[in-house]
């Protein structure tokens, strides 16, 4: 759709500061209408995974931006470790009761990486079985955490994000904060090796404090079919207000890439190598977490 031609209604009038502002507002409105029209007509693109680039860039990321820039604010380190083109696998620690840490990483890469890279996350199967959540996740470019999907994305040159701690990480009690849980079976390492893309160990500080889990109501969780039911200082006591995350100060550090193209073909089938690499990634993240925590003056500043 070509942009509408702008014809000034009153060419004699000097443009004033005020008029300029309202003109910009009109253009914005026209853009919003065009967007809405495309959505209603179904004339937009999704890729094979259901990723809707337009919706992600124009709606989903802007709606997360205030949280990223104002509420927490997030400070990013080492973004240059993420390549500007080609595949890469981001492996990070997971915490914070709901997976806001992964969303903030997505915003960091989209807004602050020089190549504005889209993070394609691998999510638990539970995410895709939940109404609305699964649909939004697919639209935002995420897919099921399984090796075929991970390899397909990496081989097509996407930046893939994985949080190997899964629910063990997000649902852990506050007393265990910044202590990494088991890293699954390390399937992510073999995916990176097969696709020959660098692994970028990423450490996130701040997410642990947004909803500190004091206790887990296991019975309620079983009734609701969720992996855990968090009891935080504000939830469920304050009702919906309890859903507001505490405004902690965040740091996301993208670490030195671990190159995988140095290994020979078939290395992905060597379980010992997989264990060692998984451990290396886990240790790197854990040490970076301790380093960042040492540097942090307070939880909120």
């Amino acid at each position: 759709m070509s942009d509408a031609q702008v014809i000034p209604l009153n060419p004699d009038r000097e443009p004033t500061g005020d008029g300029g502002a309202s003109f910009a507002g009109e253009q914005h409105l026209a853009g919003a209408f065009r967007f809405l029209r495309r959505r209603l007509e179904g004339s937009y693109e999704v890729d094979d995974f259901g990723f809707d680039r337009e919706l992600t860039n124009d709606v989903l990321i802007p709606s997360l931006r205030p949280l990223y820039e104002k509420w927490f604010p997030v400070e990013v380190h080492g973004i240059e470790n993420v390549p500007s083109e080609g595949g890469a696998l981001i492996v990070a620690n997971h915490s914070g009761t709901i997976a806001l840490d992964s969303l903030m990483t997505q915003v960091a890469l989209a807004d602050h990486h020089p190549a504005h890279r889209q993070l394609r996350m691998l999510g638990a199967d539970l995410v895709f079985a939940v109404p609305f959540l699964g649909t939004v996740a697919r639209r935002a470019g995420h897919t099921l955490a399984c090796n075929p999907d991970a390899e397909r994305l990496l081989e097509s040159g996407e930046v893939v994000g994985v949080w190997p701690e899964g629910f063990k990480g997000v649902g852990k009690p506050y007393s265990e904060r910044y202590r990494l849980q088991r890293f699954g079976r390390g399937g992510f390492v073999s995916a990176a090796l097969r696709a020959q893309v660098p692994i970028i160990p990423t450490s996130i500080v701040g997410a642990e404090e947004i909803y500190p889990i004091l206790a887990d109501a296991k019975l309620l969780a079983r009734l609701l079919g969720t992996p855990y039911f968090p009891i935080t200082p504000t939830f469920p006591w304050l009702g919906p207000l309890g859903l507001i995350p505490l405004p902690s100060k965040w740091h996301i550090e993208f670490g030195e890439p671990i190159m995988t193209d140095v290994f020979t073909e078939g290395a992905a089938d060597d379980p010992m190598l997989m264990f060692n690499l998984t451990d290396q990634v886990r240790e790197t993240i854990q040490h970076t977490l301790y380093k960042l925590l040492m540097q942090r003056r307070s939880v909120f500043f």
């Binding site: 007509e41 097509s156 996407e158």
Partner: peptide
């Protein structure tokens, strides 16, 4: 409203963000 006028090209995965 009308049907989308022109068929938009098919995208593949990859490419610029």
């Amino acid at each position: 409203w009308d049907a989308p006028e022109e068929p938009t090209p098919v995208t593949t995965i990859g490419g610029v963000a």
